[in-house]
């Protein structure tokens, strides 16, 4: 059975390479930007007002996808909370420094790691916030920025200091950020434009921090949500209570 699957898959690959040579799967004009992409490139400075066109697409043209995307992250954080029973009995153990086996395998974190982490910790936040607020001006934005902020949490976990996961705060942030995204969108629905996620703020002057209408706000909300969910998901796995034997 395994060999069959292997042979079929490798045959599919060879077929694909051959088809590229013979042009079987080539559609009309593969080397040009398609109609939608062309239109986005031409209109985005006027409609979305962001320097970074990718941000215009992520937050404005396909903002609804982004809402779905943060929902997926929310779901996986929620799923991990369900599997690891965070907020339930684990709350009383949250002050301990992770699974016991961990330090034995890797050795206790050294002086340099601990000191370095303490110094670097605020810079992670600062850099993350910088990336988030410049999302509409340069590569970056809510997703990378949120991940950078969450990295600060991970470094704190690595040092093995008595790490306390602000469980309550994270949950509030997760829910609040999601609701703000929907709220900003609904404001568009009830504005004269009359459609969800419509741009209700003035576009400002092109290329400055305060431009592009609601895009930076939405991206900030996404950043908060990503940061809270990533730290929550990893923190909950790490601060897992004793394995629970059931049934």
């Amino acid at each position: 059975m395994r060999h069959v699957v292997g042979i079929v898959l490798i045959a599919a690959f060879i077929f694909y390479v051959l088809s590229l040579v013979s042009g079987l799967f080539i559609g009309p004009d593969p080397e040009a930007v398609g109609p939608v992409g062309r239109q986005v490139l031409e209109q985005s400075t006027r409609e979305a007002g962001a320097v970074n066109t990718v941000t215009s697409v992520v937050v404005f043209y396909r903002g609804f996808d982004t809402l779905g995307e943060v929902t997926v992250l929310f779901l996986s954080a929620l799923g991990i909370a369900v599997f690891f029973r965070a907020g339930g009995e684990s709350a009383n153990r949250a002050g301990t420094s992770g699974p016991a086996g961990n330090t034995e395998e890797c050795g206790a974190p050294g002086f340099i790691l601990r000191t370095g982490a303490r110094i670097l910790y605020p810079f992670f936040f600062l850099f993350g916030i910088y990336i988030i607020v410049h999302g509409h001006l340069s590569p970056g934005g809510g997703f990378p920025g949120g991940v950078i902020i969450a990295t600060g949490f991970f470094v704190a976990i690595l040092t093995g200091d008595r790490f306390h996961l602000p469980e309550g705060l994270l949950t509030v942030l997760e829910g609040f950020a999601g609701l703000s995204f929907i709220g900003l969108g609904l404001a568009g629905l009830f504005s004269p434009a009359g459609s969800f996620l419509a741009n209700i703020l003035p576009l400002g002057s092109f290329g400055t921090i305060f431009s592009a209408g609601i895009l930076p706000l939405l991206y900030a909300v996404v950043g908060v949500k990503v940061a809270a969910e990533l730290s929550g998901a990893v923190g909950r796995i790490y601060l897992d209570p004793e394995p629970v034997e059931e049934q």
Binding site: G34, G37, L41, V54, V57, R62, D65, V72, L73
Partner: peptide
């Protein structure tokens, strides 16, 4: 084309969620 780059961003995040 900026659109596929935006799609990939979404796909990466969803992939991350599933992996976690």
């Amino acid at each position: 084309d900026p659109v596929p780059q935006a799609l990939v961003l979404t796909a990466i995040v969803i992939g991350f969620g599933i992996t976690a």
